[in-house]
Design a protein around this nucleic acid. Structure first.
Lengths: 206, 206
DNA sequence: AGCTATGTACACCGATCGGTACCAGTCTGG
DNA sequence: CCAGACTGGTACCGATCGGTGTACATAGCT
């Protein structure tokens, strides 16, 4: 499988087949879900023969896993690596990013969607979804620590839960729920950060 | 379809076919998901012939919708109709109920799971999932109003988001997330209820 | 007795699933 | 020029999908 990427000059010709397949995944999996998207349809959308698709990916399971891995490998760099924002602003920015710009709904978090659709915790895509969610919580906790939160791990886990709640709720209700999550996040952050605007109340429930 | 339930003495014989089918739905849909459960397998588990199943339900779509409708038609009565608890305690109880008792994880909220798996907002089951989620938020808002919250609708929506976040996160991470949601809920409730204890004090509202 | 309604058992339908085999074309480096 | 890797196109595989048709067994009511 290593030759796939670093072949001396091997597959330089059909350049982009792999990317086209993953691009088709992003569109079709978002529009109609993973289970309802067949390999035939997917290959047709990618303008790639099934033969080629199965030469790049061992099977649909591996393709789904790779689709998730390619989705946001750096874990929201636009939020967490933005040095123009203070740590506190970065925490809040995580809730404003997804809903930015277009008037359409924030698409369902693909990691949650994959875990629910595949329904097997040991599926490679489910495993990666877990890793990604842990990574998000860790970055939130790091930023919370940087902001001076009393209990950064707890705040990170709480904010991560808000993100997932907004994603799930947006999908079920067909209504944007990230503003609600952002409002809760503001309260939690104010309560956890001592120097900022919050009052003295710090009821950290163990 | 009216004769199905109220036939004078019609289907008294095979009593329970419908209930057995729905019971099999609850188990199989929870254990392996909706899409991965075929009608053959479902009928076998219910000890019902496919012919009978399709006499009770127009199709799998309608069966899934009915499965959701039967799940919690009264919208958590054990929480919201419990007169032994104060309104504030009822709001908190909504987060302790699902994880109670057994050592296993809280199962994924079937409404979210159905909406994600079916992936069609106009599917009858997706429509009902939306109705149910709105009903939960409404009951939470009513209870928040009863507890004297400044903005009960907002608090209800926030608490509903926490429930959904805990459900989604529990599923993805394979780790119980309701305690985290309960901790956030406690903060939100304390912040929204004026008369009650702002900090650790426990003066329950009358 | 019949009659009707409901049930089971089981074969069967077309469609679609994930995945593979085969062939012909096309580009590559030697 | 030619071997070989890689491609698209397409037919095909077995399995499973949701759903139906047919034949026969029970049950209750008249």
């Amino acid at each position: 499988m290593t030759e796939l990427e670093k072949g001396p000059q091997g597959l330089r010709r059909g350049r982009g087949a792999r990317e086209r397949i993953l691009g088709a995944c992003r569109q079709l999996f978002r529009d109609q879900g993973i289970n309802r998207t067949g390999m035939d349809e997917l290959c047709a959308a990618a303008q790639v023969s099934k033969r080629t698709a199965y030469q790049h990916f061992a099977g649909k399971d591996e393709l789904v896993a790779e689709y998730l891995r390619q989705f946001d490998p750096d874990v929201m760099p636009a939020v967490f690596d933005n040095t123009d924002l203070s740590p506190r602003e970065r925490l809040l920015a995580a809730f404003e990013l997804p809903a930015s710009g277009t008037g359409e709904l924030t698409p369902m978090c693909p990691y949650i969607a994959a875990a629910v659709e595949l329904h097997d915790p040991e599926h490679p895509a489910s495993r990666y979804a877990r890793d990604y969610k842990n990574a998000i919580a860790a970055r939130l906790a790091d930023t919370a620590r940087e902001a001076g939160a009393a209990n950064p791990e707890q705040l990170g886990e709480q904010l991560a839960l808000l993100l997932d709640g907004a994603a799930a709720r947006t999908r079920v209700l067909n209504t944007e729920s990230f503003p609600t999550a952002a409002a809760i996040a503001a309260v939690l952050i104010d309560n956890a950060l001592p120097a900022t605007a919050g009052d003295g109340a710090k009821t950290t429930v163990g």
